[in-house]
């Protein structure tokens, strides 16, 4: 259809559709927050959601693992399918869904527990380990995947809240991957971090792509350009444009996207 940027050529060839959303509408009470969003998110890809504040990108992200369920006045219509299963189907238990679709939040939110317990929490509640040794194994693997193992291996029993901001966020990523999710949602994961920590987390995101479908909401267009292969631009609740990242940033089709990229709105 269009020219794929050179560095995604290989991936595009092997990716398949992981998440498929069709005509999604979200209402907060009277407020129609998401309008007619349809999108197909591919596996082993980093997909970035960009757009001005209040455009609905975070709201849509939270629909994918039904985090909006915790808000009473929120109502979701339309279909979101993961591997062909409608996640808003009555039979789907959000608890099971969220184990499959992990999430990392804007502000690092480690539990007020030890580093070890932070990571072990998810595997424990989902009953993923038969014994202590297995759990140790899972925790170590998750911390390694979160690229923080070397920094914390000597103090696993120290409180997670004692780490620096960047370390905390990587701990939260490790915590999210410990439950072996298939999709990883990230809601502005770097907005509370300094540039060095941001760089570390971005590097990590690129590595995570090997195993997961990663969806990241970001305010920073540079970040989206750096880490993602696909980009979706949201505006006023609409998905305006969804395409390869290189295409969006170099040759957007919609004039609103162009205005946003060039800094005229937002």
């Amino acid at each position: 259809m269009y020219d794929a940027p050179h560095y995604t050529t290989q991936e595009t060839a092997v990716t398949d559709v992981k998440i498929k959303a069709k005509d999604v509408q979200v209402y907060y009470g009277e407020n129609h927050a998401i309008k007619d969003v349809s999108v197909e998110i591919e596996n082993n890809t980093v997909t970035a959601f960009i757009g001005p504040s209040g455009c609905g990108k975070s709201t849509f992200l939270r629909c994918i693992n039904r985090m909006n369920d915790t808000i009473d006045i929120c109502r979701v219509e339309g279909d979101i399918l993961i591997d062909g299963d409608d996640i808003y189907d009555k039979r789907v238990d959000p608890v099971q869904l969220r184990a499959k679709v992990g999430m990392v939040f804007q502000k690092p939110n480690p539990f007020p527990k030890s580093i070890y317990d932070n990571v072990a929490y998810g595997p424990k509640i989902h009953g993923m380990a038969r014994n202590k040794a297995e759990l140790d194994d899972i925790v170590e693997r998750a911390l390694r995947r979160g690229a923080i193992w070397d920094e914390v291996k000597d103090r696993l029993q120290a409180p997670g809240t004692g780490l620096s901001g960047g370390q905390q966020q990587r701990l939260c990523i490790a915590r999210a991957v410990a439950t072996e999710p298939e999709v990883l949602l990230m809601d502005e994961p770097c907005s509370a971090l300094d540039p060095i920590a941001t760089a570390q987390v971005e590097e990590l995101i690129d590595e995570l792509r090997q195993n997961y479908a990663v969806v990241i909401v970001t305010h920073s267009m540079q970040q989206a350009a750096r880490v993602s292969q696909k980009t979706a631009f949201f505006h006023l609740g609409y998905l305006v444009e969804y395409d390869d990242t290189s295409k969006i940033f170099t040759n957007p089709e919609d004039s609103r996207t162009e205005s946003y990229i060039t800094g005229r709105i937002g």
């Binding site: 608890v95 099971q96 992990g102 999430m103 939110n109 539990f111 929490y121």
Partner: peptide, 23 residues
């Protein structure tokens, strides 16, 4: 954010309360 973190990992509400909120 503490609760969100727990729900995001697939904890039920009572698990979140007992293991995250109450501690």
């Amino acid at each position: 954010s503490m609760r969100d973190g727990s729900y995001g990992l697939g904890a039920t509400q009572s698990e979140t309360i007992r293991q995250v909120v109450l501690p």
